[in-house]
Design a protein around this nucleic acid. Structure first.
Length: 945
RNA sequence: GGGGGCGUGGCGGAACUGGCAGACGCGCUAGAUUUAGGAUCUAGUUCCCAAAAGGAGUGCAGGUUCGAUUCCUGUCGCCCCCA
């Protein structure tokens, strides 16, 4: 018996591809190239999840089809293997993170090979390979060696940084410090999110609701020396160049919002005595707006300079440099207490709309430059030191947060924007200062500017401020510089050396590790556990590692490590030239292969990974190491695969069923009766215990009780995780691949159904039987297959299939491609005579989707070599259309009859044929035909009455 | 609260640019074959009506159009992201 047996076929072909290096990337690109890339996985201890192979199958289909279509293909796989989980595991089990990581990588590779992906495994890389992170360190040194020239909007060598004379005159050390302050990689002492439990500092985006994203531990704010990357310099280019890439609009928007470019104005508010004011004003009018704010003014950034007349107070951040200067003696104690408290809160907590706004008066006043009014200066933590200038002018009538604050502290509210007629607000209340209106409108209470629209007013006032030297147009970004250091062991060491004086203390001078001394490997540590102090584990390395001498100067190594993002910022470049020991990538090869043509991965990387790697790419481009300015041409996010659909019913504490429609999750995410808050327990039902009645699913045993029906995210705790290994063992890799693609559109999230896998498996069974004689003892062709003259219908079926499958692969609509192939098999199974050449073409079409069975059938059809490089089937357009079509005839939009007409029948003829149809003639009896709409080959609609 | 996406049979989904709604698959029903079936084959399967004829139907309410799942307005619900 020669049934379709994936368990036997698949390992055999996997071995064949491996041994023959079938998918080795050609040395040279000939003709068109395709670089198809998956977002490489983090090799977790849990192994592969079914979500992984979804995207991987998609790129694999595209890659396999491209090879057959004659393209030169680069399709690699690697591992993003630094990061917290391996280190946590190592700490718990007193093992080495490297060994654990390598073990996990081996599991991943085995699992991936089981799925028959056509990766060039010779190019496998891991970010933890010393030969890889040597170049991560090298790129860091490029960042370290680069400053951003704002005029040219370009990163340039630090040696070309113009040094101001006043710095030059103070000596070489000062020049070095000046340079250090301008590097793209620089040190800072900004307050950071320190997580004692994890023993590390976290990026803002790794902190969620005051807890660490990993492990949910509390996070506190403290100032620490950190490495930062000056990504803000590239904000404009990162935003503008989004126009050049083929990405989903949603992702582009996320990136734009993350960058958060806003335009507005910087305005200086004078403080101090009245006579100083006049001097100040005349100086400003004469000299213009100074680059740096002076001692007796407070600079704010606002996106709404048109509301300047409504600025009734000012707010500075608790960390603002002018706090001390502005605080009066009477207020000193209150201010100090307030600032100390604020230091404990995270930026996120401070901006949280739910918490009440708090603040403290400094005791000082500033002068509103447009109307000369004295307005109080407050300190409040809803203003962040890191955004804008760290100070704002508060316009309570037109800013929600200012309004809330002003109401709390009883500050003046002056409306200066009249909402338009149509605005969805109570205009009376706004005009009375009782409600806040943040939209656009018409200026009021603004002196000579009254009556201007918001946008006109903005231009006019900026013009005025500029003339008076009080302000200027300005651009601001939400994007912050990137906190790039971590106090962990399992990451790339920084290739940085701190200069020591004779006593062994740091002088504050730093330098990069010389290129020839790279890589800086991680030291061997007995104990790399974090100890709850923000002192990196690498501090515990032995002196051999920690200290070094260059040209007679003593240095201590930097002991922070890089965050996990580092390695993933440039891995796509290393795949092009993975073994190069002399460069991170050969420029000729980079030119051949970049950009990545198709990049598929989860939407969770929509912002950070993609923004960070684009940033690095642009720096490398500026410095002449790359010829492309954007790395990823086309980006696709695959949807999430949810668990199987579940039915859930609810019971209260008396074991009484409760309708699901009455249940709502409470704040602790427990199901509860919405009206009373009573906690109920959820019961997972078997599918046959529920049925649909009307709109809802209900209990079969008690149809009055409605139940929930939905698919949940796969999670260990829910126990609905599907292990790809088990699916491969039971149904085969081809079936898993096919099912993942057949489930629905790639970008959508969709629920898993093991029955569905069985369904595509039986499609492969049928395809097998269409070609193979299942009854025979040896592998033989089905008797129906032979050298038959193909019928017209058979040829058309093939050509239609080729056309749709080809087009669908192009637009990644794999689900419809598969359904078309199913139709092909359904049709040919019914054919007594199956011309072999047609079936061969079909096998080629199937092969990118289900490569193992296709190779097997290809061989059986008499071919010696792998089909991996066989020419992709071509279709003839004329063979994809039927000779005749059934055309529906409608009267007033309702189908009354259908007629068969030859394809291409003219409009007039079709109209005549339609009117001549018996049923139509009968239906039209007594009616007047007013109009006939004819769409050739499609439909006839008769308007009559 | 802001932004984005989505609502089509019992389920996943299809429908080109506004032109026969429900392709393909799952599930279900009946039959054939079989010692057996979680195998295979055949037929059926949006809903209402016993069937036919007919009617209704793409979350809901409107609008544009000869014609709307598709475009517009409003509304309800769900999901995701941000706060």
């Amino acid at each position: 018996m020669t049934k379709y047996n994936p368990a036997e076929i698949e390992p055999r072909w996997q071995r064949f591809w491996d041994e023959n290096k079938t998918f080795k990337t050609p040395e040279k690109v000939t003709g068109e190239k395709l670089y198809a890339l998956d977002m490489f996985p983090y090799p977790s201890g849990d192994g592969l999840h079914v979500g992984h192979p979804e995207g991987y199958t998609a790129t694999d289909i595209v890659s396999r089809q491209a090879r057959m279509a004659g393209k030169t293909v680069l399709h690699p796989m690697g591992f993003d293997a630094f990061g917290l989980p391996a280190e946590e595991h190592a700490i718990r089990n007193n093992a080495s993170p490297r060994q654990f990581t390598e073990k996990n990588i081996n599991t991943f590779v085995r699992q991936l090979k089981n799925l028959g992906f056509s990766y060039d495994w010779d190019r496998q890389i891991s970010t933890t390979d010393v030969g890889y992170f040597k170049w991560t360190q090298w790129i860091f040194l490029v960042l370290f060696d680069t400053w951003f020239d704002t005029e040219q909007q370009k990163g340039r060598p630090i040696s070309e940084l113009p040094i101001p004379d006043e710095v030059l005159s103070t000596g070489e050390d000062e020049v070095r410090k000046y340079q250090d302050e301008h590097r793209l990689a620089f040190q800072s002492h900004a307050p950071v999110n320190w997580c004692p439990n994890l023993g590390t500092v976290l990026a803002n985006e790794e902190v969620i609701d005051g807890l660490s994203e990993v492990g949910k531990h509390p996070v506190q704010r403290m100032p620490l020396r950190q490495w930062m990357l000056r990504i803000t310099s590239y904000a404009d280019r990162l935003e503008n160049d989004l126009e050049d890439v083929d990405w989903p609009e949603g992702i582009k928007k996320l990136q734009r919002d993350w960058i958060g470019r806003s335009t507005g104005a910087e305005v200086d508010f004078h403080f101090g005595d009245a006579e100083g004011l006049e001097n100040w004003q005349s100086t400003r009018a004469a000299d213009g707006f100074p680059r740096n704010q002076d001692e007796d003014s407070l600079r704010v950034y606002t996106t709404r300079p048109d509301t300047l007349f409504g600025a009734t107070y000012m707010v500075i951040a608790p960390e603002h440099g002018a706090v001390e200067r502005l605080t009066t003696d009477e207020q000193a104690a209150a201010v100090k207490k307030y600032c100390d408290d604020a230091a404990m809160k995270s930026d996120r907590d401070r901006q949280d709309d739910r918490t009440k706004k708090t603040g403290v008066f400094t005791g000082s006043f500033a002068v509103n430059p447009v109307n000369g009014k004295a307005i109080p200066i407050w300190i409040a933590d809803y203003v962040l030191a890191s955004y804008g200038t760290g100070a704002i002018m508060a316009v309570p009538a037109h800013d929600v947060r200012d309004f809330e604050f002003a109401t709390t502290y009883d500050l003046e509210i002056i409306p200066v924007v009249e909402p338009p007629e149509k605005a969805d607000v109570d205009r009376e209340s706004v005009m009375a200062g009782k409600k806040c209106f943040a939209g656009l409108g018409t200026a009021i209470n603004s002196g000579e500017f009254d009556g201007l629209s918001t946008s006109e007013f903005k231009d006019k006032i900026i013009e005025r401020l500029t003339t008076d030297g009080m302000g200027q147009a300005a651009v601001n970004y939400k994007l912050r510089d990137w906190l790039f250091s971590r106090q962990r062991f399992w990451g790339e060491p920084f290739p940085i050396l701190h200069e020591l004086d004779d006593a062994g203390n740091k002088t504050g001078m730093i330098r990069g590790v010389p290129e020839e001394d790279l890589p800086v490997d991680l030291p061997q540590l007995e104990d790399f556990k974090p100890h709850g102090r923000p002192e990196p584990p690498l501090e515990k390395a032995d002196d051999d590692w920690l200290y070094t001498v260059i040209d007679g100067v003593n240095y201590k190594r930097e002991t922070n490590t890089m965050p996990q993002w580092a390695g993933s910022c440039w891995y796509y470049l290393r795949f092009i030239d993975p073994d190069n020991d002399g460069a991170f990538v050969d420029p000729e090869l980079e030119k051949q292969w970049m950009p990545v043509d198709l990049y598929i991965g989860g939407a969770e990387h929509a912002v950070l990974h993609l923004l960070y790697s684009r940033f690095w790419h642009k720096v490398l481009y500026d410095r002449g190491h790359l010829r492309t300015s954007e790395p990823f041409k086309k980006l696709v996010n695959q949807g999430m695969i949810l668990g199987d659909v579940e039915f859930t019913a609810y019971r209260d504490s008396n074991e009484q069923w409760i309708c699901a429609s009455l249940i709502k999750e409470n704040d602790e995410k427990k199901p509860a009766v919405e009206s009373t808050g009573e906690i109920v327990h959820a019961i997972k039902l078997e599918p046959d215990q529920a049925e649909k009645v009307g709109e809802n699913f209900v209990l079969k045993s008690d149809p009055k009780i409605s139940v929930d029906s939905r698919a949940y995210k796969m999670s260990k705790s829910r126990g609905n995780v599907v292990n790809p290994d088990e699916i491969v063992a039971e149904y085969g890799a081809d079936s898993l691949r096919l099912y993942l693609m057949f489930m629905g559109p790639l970008e959508k999230s969709k629920p898993w159904s093991t029955n569905g896998v069985n369904g595509v498996k039986s499609f492969l069974d049928r395809a097998w039987r269409m070609i193979v004689d299942e009854e025979s003892e040896t592998l033989e062709l089905n008797a129906a297959v032979g050298d038959h003259e193909p019928t017209d219908e058979q040829v058309r079926t093939l050509h239609k299939t080729i056309k749709q499958v080809t087009k669908d692969i192009e637009v990644l609509a794999f689900n419809t491609a598969i359904s078309r192939m199913m139709e092909f098999v359904n049709f040919f199974t019914k054919q007594e005579q199956r011309p072999q050449p047609l079936l061969e073409q079909f096998v080629l079409l199937l092969s990118p989707f289900a490569p193992h069975i296709s190779e097997e059938l290809w061989k059986l059809l008499g071919h010696d070599s792998s089909l991996a490089y066989q020419a992709w089937p071509q279709y003839v357009e004329s063979m994809t259309v039927d000779a005749a079509n059934e055309v529906p005839i409608q009267i007033k939009g309702k189908i009354k009859s259908k007629i068969m007409v030859p394809t291409g029948t003219s409009k007039d003829d079709l109209e005549q044929l339609a009117l001549a149809d018996e049923k139509i003639a009968a239906a039209l009896d007594g009616l007047t035909v007013r109009k006939v709409i004819v769409i050739p080959d499609k439909l006839v609609n008769i308007v009559a009455g």
